[in-house]
């Protein structure tokens, strides 16, 4: 509101401001630094500093609070490759990543494209319904899915009612089905979230490009592949990196939905990290090495995705 009061002055007095000395410029630059100082300091203190510390910790060994430098220095890292439990959680996490992220992103892209249509009715209703799962916490939905997929639960009832199965499936007691339930849960929770990013991206794309494709005789599939996807590439890259990052750090679902079971077969890397670092007899040094393994994988995958994203230009 106050912006309107200010505009009348603007035209007449504008020029003198530009001729003010460099002292003012310097003062302004300093003001800018002061404005961003709290945020920058907090990020250094809460992100970069602990990251360096975690690396130093990963070179130490010992149980509990008594830590000594490991011999050799890379001892904890060498142990990673011989730890069947770690390798198992690594494999499980990558199964989640490779299956869930592509399905989710493609589904989100299709949904966003459909909802971007100008002639579609009930758009708001569809959008809200599909995004609504994002308002539920990971812990909450984990327990809802746990209930839905319990042996005597609604999913088994429905499948038996439809005569698709003859006896109840014990979803969470079998490695394959337990992982399937986690992947289904992730899809349910995050597809709408990614869809919102694509919808936002589509709104910034000139609608006439879609119409031009239509006039040129391109069907919806061709339009989607040759018009929508290339224009949304930066957004796809962003969501791919965010989803990869999120999946590699999966914890809440592994902890609450399957509790890592059966026999740790659905346990994620972060779940294992938590177990190592904060439960029973904490081994902080080795835990830090696991956390660095996650960090390195996040960095490598982000780098690959950025490379791939750049190349197709």
């Amino acid at each position: 509101m106050s912006t309107i009061d200010l505009t009348p002055d603007q035209a007449g007095v504008r020029t003198p401001a530009r001729h003010r000395g460099t002292g003012l410029e310097k003062k302004r630059s300093l003001t800018g630094w002061i404005f961003l100082l709290p945020a920058a300091l907090l990020i250094c203190w809460m992100n970069f500093y602990p990251m360096i510390q975690a690396f130093l910790l990963s070179l130490q060994s010992g149980k509990g609070a008594k830590l000594t430098w490991a011999h050799p220095a890379w001892y904890n890292y060498a142990r990673l490759f011989k730890d069947p439990q770690f390798l198992q959680t690594l494999k499980t996490t990558f199964i989640y990543l490779v299956i869930q992220v592509p399905i989710m992103l493609i589904l989100a892209l299709i949904l966003a494209t459909l909802l971007n249509s100008k002639t579609l009715r009930f758009k708001g209703l569809f959008r809200t319904a599909i995004f609504l799962p994002c308002a539920v916490s990971l812990v909450s939905y984990s327990f809802v899915f746990r209930t839905l997929f319990s042996t005597d639960g609604p999913v088994n009832d429905a499948l038996m009612g439809l005569h698709l199965i003859s006896s109840p499936v014990n979803w969470l007691a079998n490695a394959g089905t337990a992982r399937f339930v986690i992947i289904l849960g992730l899809l349910w929770r995050w597809t709408g979230y990614n869809m919102v990013f694509y919808l936002a991206g589509l709104q910034n794309i000139d609608y006439s490009t879609f119409e031009a494709a239509r006039i040129d005789g391109a069907g919806p599939v061709k339009t989607f592949i040759y018009v929508t996807i290339p224009q949304l590439k930066p957004m796809i890259l962003l969501t791919a990196i965010m989803s990869t990052n999120g999946t590699l750090q999966l914890f809440d679902e592994s902890w609450n939905l399957t509790q890592g079971g059966p026999a740790n077969m659905s346990m994620s890397m972060s779940h294992y990290l938590y177990q190592l670092s904060f439960q029973n007899n904490p081994n902080i040094g080795y835990g830090s090495a696991v956390s660095y393994a996650i960090l390195i994988m996040v960095a490598i995958l982000a780098l690959i995705q950025m490379r791939v994203g750049d190349r197709r230009d």
Binding site: N47, P50, M51, S291, V298
Partner: peptide, 13 residues
């Protein structure tokens, strides 16, 4: 790009 997992232990300490 820093996963929370990688800062959690030192932050706790």
């Amino acid at each position: 790009m820093i996963p929370f997992a990688a800062t959690m232990i030192p932050l706790f300490r």
